Amino acid sequence: MRIDYHTHHERCGHAVGKLEEYVRRGIEIGLDELGLSDHMPLLHVDPATYLPEMAMPMDELPRYVEECFELKAKYKGRIDLRVGLEGDYIEGWEDRIGAMIAGYPWDYVIGSVHFLGEWDITDFRQTQGWESRDRLAVYKQYYGAVSKAAASGLYDYIGHIDVIKRFGFQPGADVTDLEDAALETVKRYNGAIELNASGLRTPAAEMFPSRRMLERACELGIPVTIGSDAHQPERLGQYLDEARAMLKECGITQLATFEGRKRKMVDF
């Protein structure tokens, strides 16, 4: 079973390529299942203050879903498409996020923490935000938000759970307890996580999560899915061979797949 559950396309503004280009590329590289999972429109940031190419406009969301289902029907029998959303977790905005999710028939929703307030910790244009903050305090806030996302019941799995490390800003202290507390919350609420291979092309130079966190997730029995986080069609599936190898080294032999918000484990 070859899958890639984390992808983006031109509607989100900071990716390129049309949805159909990703589908054709998925067929080309031999994927059995492809998850289309673009970023949700932002609710907590005034669109007038968006940085360029920051997020999908709200009026594009229904068009995105419609096109996903059109492609699902068009390519039936050639590749199984799953219609998903990467849904930001924003503390205090749970009701609005939940209403947006409830409005569409998703196969799965990824819960990702990109924002601490209006600061996007994953945006290379906003790394100056670290300069005025205590790094350990940022890590504590981040993992607290991850735990709240896992406990919210809004999401099918947590995306790139340790993406806080993306740009190489270290906390200056051991944060194993913070990482493990987040994983334990995922387990407590019967959630799952992804192994996001895109970390290999960032300054962090390792996947999200780290091998240590992945091994801990395995010990806890947390289901894991897999994704390239491709923002260009040619990056679909990038580093997933390495990701599958690491999963097997950690003792993981099944992947989580999703359809109609139901999780199914498959051998790989």
Rank of each mutant, 00 (worst) to 15 (best):
R216A: 14
E206I: 05
S198H: 06
R166N: 07
H160F: 07
A204T: 01
A205G: 09
G153C: 14
D156H: 02
K165V: 15
M213C: 05
E184S: 04
D177I: 06
R188M: 15
D156R: 00
M213Y: 08
F208W: 09
Y157K: 05
M213F: 10
S152N: 08
D177Q: 05
R216E: 14
V186G: 12
R212G: 12
I193K: 00
L195Y: 05
D180A: 10
E179K: 00
A192V: 03
A182S: 00
A182D: 01
R201Y: 11
H160C: 03
V163L: 10
F208C: 03
V186I: 12
E219Y: 09
G159M: 04
D177C: 04
L183I: 15
A204N: 01
N190Q: 14
I158S: 02
D174L: 05
G199K: 02
E215T: 08
A150Y: 07
L178S: 02
P171T: 11
F169R: 02
A181T: 15
A205I: 00
G168E: 10
L178K: 02
D177L: 05
H160A: 01
R166H: 09
R216L: 15
V175D: 10
V186L: 15
L200E: 14
Q170S: 13
P203Q: 14
Y157P: 10
V175R: 07
E179C: 04
L195A: 10
G172C: 12
R166D: 09
P171D: 14
L200W: 12
E184W: 11
V163T: 06
K165D: 14
E219M: 11
Q170H: 07
E206F: 13
